[in-house]
Amino acid sequence: MTDALPMRPATRDAAYNFAYLDEATKRALRRTILKAVAIPGHQIPFGAREMPLPYGWGTGGIQVTAAILGPRDVLKVIDQGADDTTNAVSIRRFFNRVAGVATTTDTRAATIIQTRHRIPETPLREGQVLVYQVPMPEPLFRLEPRLAETRRIHALADYGLMQVKLYEDIAAQGEVGSSYNHPVMVGGRYLMSPSPIPGFDNPKMHRMPALQLFGAGREKKIYAVPPWTEVRSLDFEDHPFRPVRAPHACSLCGSTGSYLDEIVTDDRGGRMFVCSDTDYCERRR
């Protein structure tokens, strides 16, 4: 692993516009983002483009990042909490090539952090932007696949369907069934998918000082949680939301408060638990 200071910008590939997309498209994206920030948790449709990375690899997050990225930004990209997973490397390389911006693994040094499936353990601060890659922006899609219908449900804030689903989970198995992508209420108004982050990360969204932007490319939606917004995981008074992590300490840094990956060490049941957030873990060692 390299040192964590922001790295000198690379030379940008001049065959492409800054950050790949043309300026008119980026402007349209920024208008969508502004609208999303103005209505926290509400999904705003946008004309997503094909990017040179496939749908499902984070095209929504990539488009959001492309729209807000400036030449002086410092970009961090994580996947599963780690900077060195292949997809994170690939996206970082993409922006390195088409925008020539500085990149970092240091959560504290980044101005923009694009993530898939995790929120960094290091608390974010004002001025930072966390860009989530979102596969299915509609929190109700397993209960109601029709977008025309879910739009109506959101308009009426008629979220009984989801409460009933949680109730049925509890009645049948004693606890809610969702371990990740657990739905949240944003600003007391919109039900929102937090993207497939583990429930462990949900509380970090609440009153986060950083701006949280969510991009779903294939589903063509952008939504946002402005800084300091109330974000509550859906639950019941007698069954409060319970963030879960593996009940172990990290084998590398000893952390008992971070989210852990379970590493299979042999074929006789051997297990080792290590921090999913590689930057956090290295800093503690």
Partner: peptide, 25 residues
């Protein structure tokens, strides 16, 4: 098919963070 293949094939990407929480659940 570009959308469909993307979402189907993205299942190849690591999902171990979510899978870990599924394991605990």
């Amino acid at each position: 098919n570009v959308e469909a293949t993307g979402f189907v094939e993205h299942l190849k990407l690591p999902h171990h963070v979510d899978f870990q929480s599924e394991l605990e659940k």
